[in-house]
Design a binder for these strands. Structure first.
Length: 902
DNA sequence: TGGACGGCGTAC
DNA sequence: GACGTACGCCGTCCAC
């Protein structure tokens, strides 16, 4: 690998000043863009590496500003002729088919350092295209520099000429010299000459400072300055020293160089009137229409191949190698990835060119025999691990779980179209392949029902006639590939690339491991509870029917409503939309308070019915032969970025009531192990304090106060000390109400007070925390103008109904907008923790494993003797997963069952 | 008979 | 007229 790293940001300024002004016909200044295109054209011809990326600064503020506030504080604003060229240069990079990379909080220089390191680690070399002196420290065996303007290499000789030292000593020298332009202080009175001399003599900055301090250096002005400004020198060294630990927004293997699309590049050069570059590249005048029409749309759907020979499979794999990417989609006999058996694999290598490899189908008499899986695995396994071929999935987690269970060891690198869509369009529409095809490709996918039948007539996919099965499967892969070509570039445009690469994609293996591992339940305990609940329900049912004076189905809200409000003539009945009597718990509670015995009995019955059917019986049925249940985490469903859990849902296991807690206690640790629970305390309220910048709330969290008590104190004017539980409870309800986008009606209902009284609470709250109002208004406005809101970590949450003409729907959307950054921000934080935690455990030599995530809680299973260490490490990683303006705190617990681990 | 839907209730 | 986000079970209704 020879990775060429172009310092895009550095180049822009240099080219702008070095190249005379140029404008294109519409008046836009393009001299820097022209310089950039020229440089890239030359680079691609003369110094081609195998991989290439253009690196940019993402914004002005970075971690260095937190370290030293004045850093780069006095950089002048960019000249107005340059400003529009920043975006154009990124566009130019795209036109050349080059990835441009930037990451919030990191300077381009640090990203370059990180990528150079990655190239070395991959056994390759790196070429840094820049003339920036700050990058010279990176020069070492395997890392070279190239001056893009002069087109000359920068090596040890050039570094020595500039700094008087070898590259590995550059930061020592820079620390002494400082940099007036960037506000790096250095030591006054010491310039390049003096610095080189000192470092040449003493070796390092610390040695120089020590010599000055101890008196080993000859007395004089220089020594005095070194003593006085020693700390300045140290901070300077930290500032100029590049960090090579930035997360890589795109894996280095994804930067493989590919030829540009002639039509796209030609169109870009035409728009900017760069005729000379076009000539140099020998680009023809491609008709505009052709350039505008993506190839994905040009190719027809259908006409796919059914692969039944090794020769045909090998040919398709070779085509994938040529392309550098391949879409892969497995077919199984069950929608659940943990049950489904592999029936075949579809591969697509270009729009319209796809094939299906049947492996486990029940063939008809006329069908050619299918390949044997061990043979196919031999060829496909090599493709799956080939770093030069990107494997593209829709729902990679599903595919990988099936492939893993079928014996595939590794699949990398990969992309996931479902997550690519989710990262930029959560809340906008669903991310199943059918919807995406309809939306982005205007193509209606063959439905599964139309191929396999529905209802009683539904066939297992293994029994679907092969021709139809093959066409269905290959089309799925074809569509996946086309969607990828269309959506992947949009990630960068929509600023969702880092979220996708660093959070969503990295979560795939974490969740896969959690799902495969599962969590143990005590089946005997659950069976006993099921029997017990059944008996108690039968007794209660008898009571209810005696009280009601007739037999009826207690489980039917319809019949119950008629009994209560018609036959028995009880007061307080309300009809719903369909005209049915409402019988939910708030209604029954109202009746029970009036002493209506039957209402209380129905509530008791319902609680047991719920626990028996939804939890006890369902979990027994879901447990595998080892007593472990395996949920499936949905990564692209929730509109806020949260995960969800299905088959079974393990994110809504009861805890609040005494009987419910018994269910939670049936979740147990494996023998010799303990369960470790770690949950964020008040994470959404903390995010509210952070994003709305609420001074009093932030202060309260910083002090570690009981936040609900503090709120009660502020809103109701009572002292924190000796506060009664009811007052605190009211304040807690208000705090939750705020997070949910409060309304007086809703809060009143929640608290059991009138809307008037609830409004008074809300007004008092807004008065004590005035910043809330501004946040709510700003967020709603953001949603109206953009259509989406952003979490503090840049996740987009769409709120499509924000401009609906129906006031009711609009109000609903406004509450969604207010809630999404908080709920979504919390999701971002715990996801980052989940990505870090398994690595941290491994590093610490702990074998604790994640088994569940419940929005603000992580549950781990750990050997008994590791539990305490695992709990501490989980706390540390979770608290450090993100940095916001209030502390994040995590509470941990250890127990033999989930109930006791809290 | 089975799929869609509404009512209800569990979690955070 | 339901303060946010989910999923699952049950009964009901209706089409096949």
């Amino acid at each position: 690998m020879r990775l060429v790293l172009v310092d895009g940001s550095g180049f822009i300024f240099r080219a702008f000043h070095a190249i005379p002004d140029m404008t294109r016909p519409d008046g836009v200044h393009v001299n820097a863009v022209f310089g950039f295109c020229n440089m890239i054209a030359r680079l691609m011809k003369e110094h081609t590496g195998s991989h290439l990326a253009v690196i940019f600064d993402a914004g002005r503020m970075t971690f260095r500003n937190r370290m030293y506030e004045p850093y780069k504080a006095h950089r002048p604003e960019a000249p107005p002729e340059l400003v529009p060229q920043f975006a154009l240069i990124r566009e130019a990079a795209r036109a050349f088919g080059l990835p441009s990379i930037e990451l919030d909080d990191w300077e381009a220089d640090d990203l370059i350092a990180a990528y150079a390191k990655a190239a070395l680690q991959a056994g390759g070399e790196a070429v840094i295209v820049s003339s920036d002196k700050d990058l010279m420290q990176l020069i070492r065996p395997g890392v070279t520099m190239l001056d893009p303007m002069k087109n000359v290499p920068i090596g040890e000789a050039e570094v020595a000429a500039k700094f008087g030292v070898t590259p590995d000593k550059v930061i020592e020298v820079q620390a002494l010299i400082g940099d007036a332009v960037d506000n790096v202080p250095g030591v006054r009175g010491i310039g390049p000459k003096g610095a080189a001399e000192l470092i040449g003599q003493y070796g390092t900055l610390e040695a120089v400072l020590e010599a000055a301090k101890s008196g080993a250096m000859k007395p004089g002005k220089r020594r005095d300055m070194l003593v006085e400004f020693a700390d300045n020198a140290r901070i300077s060294k930290e500032l100029v020293k590049l960090r090579d630990d930035a997360p890589l927004p795109e894996p280095v293997e994804d930067l493989a160089l590919r030829h540009w699309d002639d039509a796209v590049l030609s169109a870009f050069l035409d728009t900017n009137n760069f005729k000379s570059i076009k000539q140099r590249l020998a680009l023809s005048d491609a008709p505009r229409a052709e350039a505008a029409a993506p190839k994905a749309e040009a190719a027809a759907f259908g006409g796919y191949e059914t692969i039944t020979s090794m020769a045909a499979l090998t040919a398709l794999i070779e085509a994938a190698r040529q392309a550098g990417f391949v879409a892969v989609d497995v077919q199984t006999d069950d929608r659940n990835s943990l049950h489904g058996n592999l029936l075949g694999i579809a591969l697509a290598v270009a729009p319209g060119r796809a094939g299906y490899v049947p492996l486990g189908h029940n063939l008809g008499l006329e069908d050619t025999p299918q390949l044997l899986w061990p043979d196919a695995l031999g060829a496909l396994g090599a493709l799956f691990t080939d770093v030069a071929v990107l494997k593209i999935f829709h729902d990679a987690k599903y595919n990988l779980e099936v492939l893993t269970r079928a014996g595939v060891a590794q699949v990398a690198p990969l992309d996931d179209v479902m997550l690519i869509s989710y990262a930029q369009d959560a809340g906008n529409f669903s991310h199943d392949r059918e919807t995406l095809a309809r939306k982005h490709l205007a193509h209606e996918l063959k439905s599964f029902d139309s191929v396999a039948g529905s209802g009683r007539a539904r066939l297992s996919f293994a029994n679907v006639p092969l021709a139809g099965a093959s066409a269905f499967a290959a089309e799925a892969a074809d569509v996946t590939l086309r969607l990828w070509a269309m959506l992947k570039p949009l990630l960068r445009v929509n600023k969702s690339l880092a979220l996708y690469e660093l959070v969503e994609k990295k979560l795939i293996p974490v969740l896969t491991a959690m799902e495969l591992h599962g969590v143990m339940v005590d089946r005997a305990d659950l069976r006993a509870m099921s029997v017990e609940f059944e008996g108690r329900m039968a007794e209660i049912e008898t009571d209810i029917q005696r009280l009601a004076g007739q037999e009826f189905n207690v489980g039917s809200p319809k019949q119950l409503g008629e009994i209560l409000f018609e036959r028995m003539g009880l007061p307080g009945g309300k009809r719903g939309k369909a005209g049915a009597w409402g019988t939910d718990s708030s209604v029954l509670e109202g009746l029970a308070e009036q002493g209506i015995e039957v209402a209380q009995r129905v509530m008791d019955w319902r609680q047991l019915a719920k626990l028996k059917s939804t939890y006890a019986d369902a979990l027994i049925g879901q447990a595998d032969e080892n007593g472990r249940v395996h949920t499936s985490f949905q990564m692209a469903v929730a509109a806020t970025g949260r995960l969800s859990s299905t088959d079974p849902n393990l994110q809504n296991i009861p805890i609040r009531t005494v009987e419910g807690a018994r269910i939670r206690k049936t979740f147990i640790a494996a023998p010799g192990c303990s369960l470790v629970s770690a949950d964020y305390s008040q994470i959404e309220l903390r995010l509210l304090a952070h994003v709305a910048d609420i001074a009093a709330l932030k202060e309260s969290f910083a002090r570690g106060e009981d936040i609900h008590a503090r709120t009660a104190s502020e809103v109701f004017g009572v002292p924190m000390a000796g506060m009664d539980a009811a007052t605190r409870r009211r304040a807690k309800a208000i705090n939750f109400g705020i997070i949910y986008g409060i309304s007086a009606f809703g809060l009143g209902r929640q608290l059991g007070v009138g809307a008037g009284e609830a409004k008074a609470y809300i007004d008092a709250y807004f008065k004590r925390y005035p910043e809330i109002r501004a946040y709510m208004e700003a967020t709603k406005e953001e949603a109206r103008s953009q259509g989406y809101v952003l979490t503090p970590f840049g996740r987009r949450c769409w709120v499509p109904r924000i401009k609906d003409k129906m006031p009711q729907l609009r109000a609903y959307a406004e509450r969604q907008a207010i809630n999404a950054p908080l709920q979504g921000g919390a999701a971002d934080i715990i996801k980052q923790a989940m990505v870090k935690l398994p690595k941290a455990m491994a590093r610490a030599g702990l074998s604790a494993t994640l088994i569940l995530q419940v929005h603000d809680e992580l549950l781990l299973e750990a050997p008994d003797d590791e539990a305490r260490a695992a709990a501490e490490l989980a706390r540390e990683v979770m608290q450090g997963a993100a940095e916001i303006s209030v502390p994040l705190t995590v509470e941990t617990g250890i127990g033999k069952n989930w109930g006791d681990a809290h």
